[in-house]
Design a protein around this nucleic acid. Sequence first.
DNA 1: TTGAAAGCGCTAACAA
DNA 2: TTGTTAGCGCTTTCAA
Lengths: 349, 349
Amino acid sequence: MSNDNGADKSAKITLGDVAREAGVAKSTASEALTGSGRMTDATRRAVREAAQRLGYRPNALARGLRTGRTHSIGLHRLHAPDNFDSEYFRELIAGVMDVAITHDYDLSLLSSNPVRPRSVAPRVDGIILADPIADDLRAIELLNSGIPVVAGERYPPGMPTSPVVGIAHETALTELLEHAYRSGARRPALFAPDEKSGWGVVLRDTFLGWCRERGLPGIHRTTAFKGRRFREDEGDLLAALLTGTDPVDLVVVPGEHAALATREVMRDMGLQVGRDVLLAVCADAHLLELCEPPITAIDLSPRRLGATCAQALVNHLDHGTPLAELTLLEAHLTLRNSTERLVQQADTP
Amino acid sequence: MSNDNGADKSAKITLGDVAREAGVAKSTASEALTGSGRMTDATRRAVREAAQRLGYRPNALARGLRTGRTHSIGLHRLHAPDNFDSEYFRELIAGVMDVAITHDYDLSLLSSNPVRPRSVAPRVDGIILADPIADDLRAIELLNSGIPVVAGERYPPGMPTSPVVGIAHETALTELLEHAYRSGARRPALFAPDEKSGWGVVLRDTFLGWCRERGLPGIHRTTAFKGRRFREDEGDLLAALLTGTDPVDLVVVPGEHAALATREVMRDMGLQVGRDVLLAVCADAHLLELCEPPITAIDLSPRRLGATCAQALVNHLDHGTPLAELTLLEAHLTLRNSTERLVQQADTP
DNA sequence: TTGAAAGCGCTAACAA
DNA sequence: TTGTTAGCGCTTTCAA
């Protein structure tokens, strides 16, 4: 019943109705409403009033079919629903929405079923590829669709590319490692996504490069960014690194869920985070500030990243501004107690 | 350059091209591809192969214009970007995406600028209104659009309505209050959204009703669900409730951000949560489990809620299943230490 | 300054 | 079984 009330006429009023009501031709009505034309103010006003009176809402589909524009942008992320777990992704979306709303674009979260590629071309004017993953067939499909694409992270090797708005992880991670070094860390370990992720590659290369320069052993393990299964998947590996004759004294993990899991493992082993072993994260989250102890992290400002991607796309679509091949945004290190200072253990057997 | 490679032909191939390539008429090609028709297997195969060869992707806009279907569903939430802060909302979206992806629907996050109503009709087949708010003009516009709407929460009074998939907050909240009562709480206070929110109304009515039945004073204050400004906005009010001759001994707040702020205020006042005063939350979040002490909350299973809304909509759109006016899902209480047991203060003056 | 008509790519009548 | 034709609602030439 509720969908049947008197007010819902708007769904059916067409431009023709408005034109008839105003006593003009369809084309005139169109121009009066889009403001594109040369015409009497009286006519224009008449048309506008008729439209108002009837509650006319242009059919976006028809308009899109004619103009080739949909006034919406798409966002793609592999395993999108699960990635809502990460503050990074949801903040990035918020940033995209901020500018989409401002510019009256709708935001379409593109179905990201990686198995069954979508048969229909996406109805969007532009696409943001948050964190492109090398073997994501759907992403590749989108890259080949002819629709402008901006990636929110650099591409992994062996993947077709597009203009990128990314983050200068290198400087922030180096800063983090330097800080840990000053806090006494000499056996750092990095968990990062594998080489199918551009982010993973940058983190790994930066980490290994820094270790080499410092003459330290670079202990690097890959892990899914996915989220909550860190302990199940990498718990044993982590425990192994933390024991033995030469235990690791700094663990860097990609996201907040891995951090919490790591903290748990450490705690269960009787290690005090920030004293016995240091812990830091490559993507900050509100959670990390609330932990006991709070955990040092790199603030990627994902909301700003999302907004920057979207703004670039909108400028391109609305004004033809060319898309820069690579834009890097700064990230900043947020120091917290988890990297406070390593206290040397007494060397008792 | 990257958008100009050889593979992006798919953008321009039309059904006519496929038909010509296969040597059949457009309509035949159409039917061969959509599978709707009666025809030789040979013809069908020929058309399919031609389509494959050319890399044909149907134009969703044109199809939509003709069929009146877009194969995408819209999600609307007032102040959507800021609401990503709440685990509730982002889990709800994840649930919606789960079923959208399964059924090959795109998900459009509808621009929710409440000031400037969108001039163009939304290009979606169905709409999910997460938590309808009475004075949200855009929501009302959507309700009047003639597009099927499912709300993810009951409507506040004085708002047009639609079928609802909601949560039985009543039983869960009552359970919570009973538990707190058994833990010794006799002066409960509820912070909840105001009467513009259906949720707020249900919480308030349930709370006040229960208090009346128990013969307890029902201390009820309204607050925005928004999130991170709880302490700034309600901190003083809360502090006042916690002091005086008859201080409150249980505080129930709507979301995780309010909970953390409340915990802080209590802590700053020297109150120990779970002993001196109890604290509970109406919408659970991962955060609350990690706090010290962990905070009791009602698990609304928002992902299931989102999925249920989306499934109802998809069933309606794909199979004409009527939308039930009201579906209520159970919520469950997750007990944690913050409602452990009130320890009676010594009655010293 | 305005109107008539074509056509965006597709599907669904209706003919053949 | 297949082809022809007529639109879906809109914008955009092109004439008047």
